[in-house]
Nucleic acid binder design. Structure first.
Lengths: 338, 338
DNA sequence: GTCTGGCACTCGGACGCGCAGAGTGCCAGG
DNA sequence: CCTGGCACTCTGCGCGTCCGAGTGCCAGAC
């Protein structure tokens, strides 16, 4: 459709605009990139690109800026992912290795991503759905009160209080604890419900009510905790481009506080690799002038959660994608080790 | 020192400036407040107030705005705390009562504070130092690997992995668990160290190394977790006054991301009641044009953590103080109930 | 003494104007 | 199909002007 040269022109426009943050004209283009043609020719190409909706002019007789569609083409066809340099990789690894627990891993990841990309970083806590159970512990706090503690293979701990319908003896409790663990330890969360459904039958009638209560609390925990948590950082980077988006920064900050919105945002990206959502491709209105670069990460080969950055549509896509991908890879390693 | 009327003039200036966000002149003052004197007289008073450093002019022949010193006097002497209205109180209570666990209480508190004050809200998680131990649990994950789980009276759960110097049997583990709990359950964190110091002596020689390791991990957890966590929200409110602070919003956002800074900020306020730190009274440079209103809250009579808001020095102090105080009170109630 | 009205003065912000520069679209010619 | 040239159109900037709000000060009134 578009000739090779026109694609090159588009690429040059995107690169220059990202660099200078100013609309770019035909003359500047021929000077900074050796396209081998004159400004007039480039003007014709630009007119064609504008016709197709890849670029636009803020006003007559100004340079052109890429549209969302232009960025999309750039990301899909014109630019690769810029890999991190070895020193950068080493720095990432070193920084993440200092983490002491899961919270710390997530916190460090956020800081790292924000620093590397100079944008707002978002990291989702490893999801429970795809995790496995390491251990379930039951503690008797009072005759009819049990505390349920769930420990996952990613190091996450969840606890719930259970009020039992009837007093529950220590021996029954120990019995339940043992049976429960032998069935679910090492298993995936999604498999737990059917693994425990017949468990009450193994107990005396008077204990069955309590056992059922404990089990349903456990199942609730699995579901509830899928309202997954996340951590964000680097919001100060928003001010870097606030000078021309003074009105836009507010809705972005608001969107970032709505965890639900962010989770949906990350969740939408089904691609196994790095996903980029540009401008209006983001469902949420406040994020219509931002792009989201996200990727899944996980302790094994499988993704257990997502992380990414939010920035202006005018961002360095290759570099950002490289940073996001690299960080995800190393976080995965760290999680696998611990 | 300052005559009664001059204080009234200062009060009027602060109120008007907070309302209009514009420097206030003598004429406007006499019109909006019935001071019973003419603008000329007010001008003399303003000159005196400026002489004393309570107000300043942005430039010659503009109205006056309060200085930090002026706000200080206003807060200390001229304004009370504006109590919440009964409907507001009910709304606060209802909103907080829906919380399902500690994280949720803190999250809701942040949202609530941000909404009520229309400013940035900061809530510190209940501190462990003043909490008591509800239960300590030990789980054997491998022959020489133990998981330590600590449960506090505020519902917080901390876990640590312990690598033992020697294999540790289930019976020894149960023994340690029982002894440990009988000594520390219900006790304050600060008392734990001396309560367990002679515990290794009760065990066989070959287990003493492991017992010591477990205990020192427990003590570490107490100390480490005093690097307390906090949650912030309502940063979008910063943009409300960004139009005249476009350069100031960035350092504020940066400061808000530095949890250490915030913790120090909250920690400095020793006053048992609501504490207000105005402008340059805040040690951190990025917060020199903001005020911090904070107060301790706790489940009993005693404060276990702090919460507060960060906003422009030009804020509604009585209203903000009232909201902060009310929220702290109700959070305390909620924590006491759970 | 203290307050008041009057008056001259000083700024900052808004408005209008003109200019320069960058960039465009189009056209005729290679 | 590319190129150089040309007329056109914007925006941004600098400058001068004007207006109004607000001040400080002073002489007179209570």
């Amino acid at each position: 459709m578009l000739s090779e040269r026109r694609l090159q022109v588009l690429r040059a426009i995107v690169q220059d605009y990202v660099g200078t943050e100013e609309p770019v004209g035909s003359k500047a283009l021929t000077e900074r990139h050796n396209l081998g043609v004159s400004p007039a020719t480039v003007r014709n190409d630009m007119a064609a690109l504008e016709e197709e909706g890849y670029i636009a002019q803020p006003h007559t007789s100004a340079g052109r800026i890429p549209t969302d569609k232009g960025y999309r083409l750039f990301v899909d066809k014109l630019a690769g992912v810029k890999p991190m340099t070895p020193p950068e990789r080493r720095a990432i690894q070193n920084f993440l290795e200092g983490a002491v627990d899961l919270d710390d891993v997530v916190a460090r990841t956020v800081r790292l991503l924000a620093q590397l990309t100079r944008q707002v970083a978002v990291v989702q806590y490893p999801s429970l759905t795809r995790s496995t159970v390491r251990h379930v512990e039951l503690l008797s706090l009072a005759p009819a009160r049990v505390m349920l503690v769930l420990i996952t293979d990613t190091g996450r701990v969840e606890q719930r209080m259970v009020d039992c319908p009837a007093p529950f003896g220590e021996t029954s409790l120990a019995d339940l604890r043992a049976r429960l663990n032998s069935r679910v330890a090492g298993r995936r969360f999604t498999d737990v419900p059917k693994l425990v459904e017949d468990l009450p039958e193994a107990f005396e009638v008077e204990d069955r009510g309590t056992v059922s209560t404990v089990l349903s609390t456990l199942l609730e925990t699995l579901v509830e905790e899928n309202e997954e948590r996340l951590m964000i950082g680097g919001t100060a980077n928003l001010t870097r481009f606030a000078h021309d988006f003074p009105l836009t920064i507010r809705p972005v900050l608001e969107a970032l506080e709505e965890q639900v919105v962010l989770l949906k945002l990350l969740g939408e990206a089904k691609d196994p690799g790095v996903t980029v959502r540009i401008g209006h491709e983001n469902a949420h209105e406040g994020l219509n002038s931002t792009s989201v670069v996200s990727v899944g990460y996980g302790s094994g080969g499988e993704a257990v959660a997502k992380l990414g950055v939010v920035g202006p549509t005018r961002m360095d896509y290759p570099g950002t994608m490289g940073a996001v991908r690299a960080v995800a890879r190393y976080v995965g390693q760290i999680l696998a080790e611990s």
